[in-house]
Design a protein around this nucleic acid. Sequence first.
DNA 1: ATTGAATGCGAATACATATTCGCATTATGT
DNA 2: ACATAATGCGAATATGTATTCGCATTCAAT
Lengths: 205, 205
Amino acid sequence: MRKRPQQQRSRELVKALIDATAKVIQQQGLDNTTTARIAEVAGVSVGSLYQYFGDKDGLIEALMESLADDIGAGLKRLPLLDNVDMNAMISSAIQFGFAVLNSRDGLYLELVRNWHRLPTDRVVNTLQQHFMDLARLYFLRHYQDYPIRNLEVRVFIVTNSVLFTMVRHISQHNGLIREDDLANELTRMVAGYMTTPPDSQDAPA
Amino acid sequence: MRKRPQQQRSRELVKALIDATAKVIQQQGLDNTTTARIAEVAGVSVGSLYQYFGDKDGLIEALMESLADDIGAGLKRLPLLDNVDMNAMISSAIQFGFAVLNSRDGLYLELVRNWHRLPTDRVVNTLQQHFMDLARLYFLRHYQDYPIRNLEVRVFIVTNSVLFTMVRHISQHNGLIREDDLANELTRMVAGYMTTPPDSQDAPA
DNA sequence: ATTGAATGCGAATACATATTCGCATTATGT
DNA sequence: ACATAATGCGAATATGTATTCGCATTCAAT
């Protein structure tokens, strides 16, 4: 942020710009998100935009920071650890995921699709960290004895698998697969995998 | 394609353009892929480009068609069904996936990252179709009796999970997770999931 | 009320890029 | 060799977009 907004109106202007950025991305897609449109939607001139943000990327960064906080807060609010069995816990988490992706008219959807050209580190770390902690706590509480090796790898796989499978499904309006079927199957895959001992080969052949 | 190349040199020109498109995407990224650069790399003028392709998208479409064929051929060449157990079969498929993503200096990587703004239907269908057939044949051969319900959903989940987890991993140079660990764990997750009966809840709590 | 700082403005600037078009060159059939 | 079609060229055109800058307006403190 180039300059700190000091007065009330400029703080509102900054907020309006970040909100407008979200709105434009959600309505026009990241490719058609221009500083002109953002300023217009915010009811502000382009010049004012550059008073508080060094460039367009700075503005988008600010949006991502804000959303990372939202997601972090949303996750903390979910009482995932209260679930006794892993199936229920994972099911809740996946439901939350779908809810987020379907919220705000597809804003999150568009952002995840474009992860590779956005400053997503903060959000990704929030997610990864949270599920990592969750997994550790869960195993400590329920399987104090058996050692879960490769927990980092497992959480990495599971997080990305679920997230991108959901995004792919929502993005392509696949009428053949219902969202709750997908959620159920994802839950089964993840629960099965997370509760598999590290060494077993486990094919019931 | 705006006009069919009839003579030898123009057929070569078209091929050079498609090759150049791949090269530029791989070297500069999709965002910096311009008609000027493509023409330059192909050793051809921009004007000639528009003789055979209606627009830039047409050119990229032609590239995708060509790659879809390559992938289809590569898949057919893999003797996946010769594996007796599912673990080996899936492991081979995942190895193939990594090989493709690491080939051509990251061309495929960049294309998968940008799936949402590319004409990927043909490639996606090729993949989905192939693994669907494979799964059907495998279950017919090995478990003739028990009915695999939701096979479409399972294949959808598994394909996207593996593909995007691989892409995410390769993209972020995550030194903490080795590629073969990831491959092993992916194999375990997928094999476990694909061989799970449709109704079981299967958490060994 | 006055004044200096903060804020806000938007036309002007400086690229970058897709696409066209009139002309030059090369191939093909006779 | 000639005529005609196919091919190739690249400067010019049209459009879009990020960013700047000099000036106008509003605020906050005295």
